[in-house]
Nucleic acid binder design. Structure first.
Length: 288
DNA sequence: TATGCGTGGGT
DNA sequence: TACCCAAGCAT
């Protein structure tokens, strides 16, 4: 296997974006919040919301003391609002189980609501500087191309962690940079649609490039159509609740003109089941 | 392992 | 215009 770490590190030193969570002393809580927001939401949309969030809730205990409704409202239009609920639960867990301090141990992080393989290691590495493989969708694409000679990565797998571990240097600080560099390269150069191989530090050792850019197919599942979907109704219902000045909306006034009333009612039920809404006395509201 | 889960910008 | 895509997670 070609040596990938050295060119990645050199490239990252020159080309890393200046992002808020990379500032020295940003703090583990800030990193954790940023990672929650970055789960499936682009960087540029996250930044303003992250800053507002941390200004309002500078510590896990501050968020834990607020009602979940405030978290869901502050989440605004970032998407996947369950993440707001999960982040709030994680804050409560951090307060109750870790004395209000974001844990450093990967297994302790994994035990928090809303934190999986990626986020746990991202916090341990980027907030605390420990040595673990951090693998996100960008890294998986970079490794799939550079090492496996494929155009796109397959579905996420635990093998991804092993593949990243294989290129991680022993030095702790350099290992963190390699993790960040692989993600950054995938986010800005080795992008999904039209990669900018002329700007890639791995171009001379990339298996995919060497093989002539074969289209190996895309094993990832396609996103379901959004128009007319349950997700779209859920989003409309939740937006109504977020925007309600009175913090409660008569059920009859919740997305009243949706073309499929039964679908809308199912969506309301599912939001209640998820803990994102509460119903009483014919009113719907965010969770207190 | 496969599926459901928001929202908006890019092409 | 219709896709495609985005630092995943829980079930």
């Amino acid at each position: 296997m070609p040596e990938l770490a050295a060119p990645l590190v050199e490239w990252y030193r020159e080309n890393a974006r200046d992002l808020p969570w990379r500032r020295p002393g940003f703090g583990a809580w800030g990193v954790l919040v940023s990672e929650f927001m970055l789960q499936q939401t682009p960087v540029n949309r996250v930044i303003p919301h992250l800053e507002a969030w941390l200004e309002r809730w500078p510590t896990p205990a501050d968020l834990a003391a607020a009602p979940p409704a405030d978290a869901v409202r502050q989440w605004a239009n970032l998407g996947y609002p369950r993440r707001a609920l999960w982040l709030h639960r994680a804050a409560v867990e951090i307060r109750d189980r870790h004395d209000g301090v974001v844990p450093r141990d990967v297994d302790a992080l994994l035990a928090l609501t809303g934190i999986g393989d990626y986020t746990a290691r991202a916090v341990a590495v980027f907030a605390y500087g420990d040595r673990h493989p951090v693998v996100d969708t960008n890294t998986r694409r970079v490794l799939a191309r550079a090492i496996d000679g494929r155009s796109q990565p397959g579905p996420p797998s635990r093998r991804d962690l092993e593949a990243m571990t294989a290129i991680l240097p022993d030095d702790v600080e350099t290992a963190a940079v390699v993790n960040a560099a692989a993600m950054e390269l995938g986010a800005t150069v080795c992008i999904a649609r039209i990669p900018r191989c002329d700007a890639c530090p791995l171009r001379d050792r990339c298996a995919w490039r060497a093989a002539g850019y074969p289209d190996t197919g895309d094993e990832r599942r396609k996103q379901a159509k959004y128009e007319g979907s349950d997700r779209q109704v859920r989003g409309a219902v939740l937006k109504t609740l977020r925007d309600a000045a009175s913090h409660a909306v008569p059920l009859l006034e919740v997305v009243p003109d949706w073309p499929d009333p039964q679908q809308r009612d199912r969506a309301i039920d599912s939001l209640i089941a998820d803990g994102l809404a509460e119903a009483s006395d014919g009113l719907l509201r965010l969770p207190a």
